[in-house]
């Protein structure tokens, strides 16, 4: 047993950098514009990235980003693959059972519907249609609860794969965050449309932390409150979401 422990200790020393209290890892998906994505230069960008960089600057933490798949993003946080989730994740009671959230850095927003321009789907009265959502999102849960009877529900591992299937006619409508839909519709060259029908789900977007990391949570929350009060967060929201009317956090 002693020998095994020694071997394991050497393995850990070799493979991981020494635990530095000032260094944290941030998990993000990198495939959900304009929240988090890889830009043309090959770097992570988006509101989640900018907000976290701002908070890291204010707290003096040394932050590195880890790209990870969305559907396992919470289990991988709890398994210790990274210390913070910043991935456009809405604060919900269900998720709060597994992880803690900071205060919101983006206020609650409605979810909308996206269809092909030629589609005759009526989002106010969905029957007999194929509805696409991203796996494990609040829209996924909402659709399962409200649209399961009489419709076909399909889930996708990334938002862009759902979009590809919508373009190919494999699904009729996508339910997603309005901010994501507005961005996609505006740049689709008339191929896509949305509707005025929206549904209110979720309670704002925050960063997720392990239940045990209360000290880090307090630190981030303090910096976030300051960044909200001086208008930094509002400016970042305006930068990434031209269509959302602020200010949200400065009185």
């Amino acid at each position: 047993m002693k020998k095994l422990i020694a071997v394991a200790a050497i393995a850990v020393a070799l493979f991981s950098t020494a635990a530095n209290a000032q260094a944290i890892r941030i998990g993000t998906e990198g495939a959900y514009e304009p929240w988090n994505y890889v830009n043309a230069d090959g770097n992570l960008a988006g509101l989640d990235i900018d907000v976290m960089n701002e908070l890291c600057k204010r707290t003096g933490l040394e932050c590195t980003f880890v790209q990870t798949a969305w559907d396992t993003i919470i289990p991988n946080l709890n398994a210790g693959n990274y210390d913070v989730i910043a991935a456009g994740m809405s604060i919900t009671d269900e998720r709060k059972e597994a992880i803690n959230f900071t205060a919101d850095y983006s206020p609650p927003e409605a979810s909308g519907f996206m269809m092909l321009e030629s589609a005759t789907v009526d989002p106010a009265n969905l029957t007999g249609v194929k509805i696409g959502t991203q796996t494990g999102t609040i829209q996924d849960a909402y659709a399962t609860e409200n649209f399961a009877t009489g419709n076909t529900l399909l889930t996708f591992d990334t938002a862009s794969n759902a979009l590809a299937d919508l373009m190919a006619g494999n699904i009729d409508v996508i339910l997603a965050d309005s901010s994501y839909i507005d961005e996609a519709v505006a740049n689709s060259g008339g191929a896509l449309k949305t509707s005025d029908v929206t549904v209110a789900i979720g309670g704002g977007v925050g960063a997720g932390l392990r239940k045990a990391d209360t000290e880090l949570l307090a630190k981030l929350d303090e910096a976030l409150a300051a960044a909200k009060a001086d208008g930094t967060i509002d400016a970042l929201i305006a930068k990434h979401f031209p269509t959302r009317k602020g200010p949200f956090y400065v009185n």
């Binding site: 990198g30 495939a31 514009e33 304009p34 994505y37 890889v38 830009n39 043309a40 960008a45 988006g46 990334t158 862009s160 794969n161 979009l163 590809a164 373009m167 190919a168 961005e183 996609a184 519709v185 505006a186 740049n187 689709s188 060259g189 191929a191 896509l192 990434h240």
Partner: peptide, 19 residues
């Protein structure tokens, strides 16, 4: 390949293209 090839309708994420 999946991430690069999937449709992109975001101005900031580079060239806008379909599937």
């Amino acid at each position: 390949a999946n991430l690069l090839g999937a449709p992109n309708f975001s101005r900031t994420a580079g060239v806008i293209h379909g599937d």
